[in-house]
Amino acid sequence: MIVLGIILLLIGIFAKISILTTIGVILVVVGAVLSLLGATGRAVGGRKTWF
């Protein structure tokens, strides 16, 4: 999720498409939160790791 967010963020910045930039930022933030929760051992949605 983080990688997809970074890719969309970069495409949005270089192509000057604001919706891709916004979606990219949201995906990076959500991916980081899920990664942190998984690293602390807390299961999110029944899973400890998200790929």
Rank of each mutant, 00 (worst) to 15 (best):
R42P: 00
K48V: 15
I6L: 15
T22K: 03
I6T: 06
K16V: 07
A39P: 04
I19G: 00
T49C: 01
A39K: 10
A43K: 09
G46D: 00
L34E: 08
L8H: 07
A39R: 10
V30L: 14
A15W: 11
I19E: 10
G31C: 10
L36Q: 06
V28M: 13
I19R: 03
T40P: 01
V33N: 01
V30S: 14
G38K: 01
S35K: 14
S18M: 07
V3L: 03
T22I: 13
G38M: 05
V33F: 14
S18F: 09
I23P: 03
F51H: 01
L8E: 05
R47V: 07
G24D: 12
A39E: 14
L10M: 07
I7V: 15
V28Y: 11
M1V: 02
T22W: 08
I26N: 02
A32W: 04
L9C: 04
L37C: 12
T40N: 08
T40V: 15
L34Y: 13
A15Q: 12
L10T: 06
I6G: 02
I13N: 08
L34K: 14
T21N: 12
L20D: 02
L27G: 04
A39D: 14
I13C: 12
G24V: 01
M1W: 04
V44N: 06
L8Q: 05
L10E: 03
I13T: 08
T49S: 10
G45W: 00
V33H: 05
T22D: 05
M1E: 04
L34D: 12
I13R: 09
G5S: 04
G5N: 01
K16F: 14
T21H: 09
I11P: 00
I11S: 00
V3W: 01
I26E: 02
I23N: 04
T21C: 13
K48R: 13
G46A: 01
I26P: 02
I19N: 00
T22V: 08
G12P: 09
G12K: 09
T49M: 14
L4T: 10
G31A: 06
S35N: 07
K48P: 05
G41P: 05
S35F: 14
G24L: 09
W50A: 03
L4F: 12
L37N: 14
I7M: 14
V3K: 06
V44Q: 01
I7P: 05
T21Q: 10
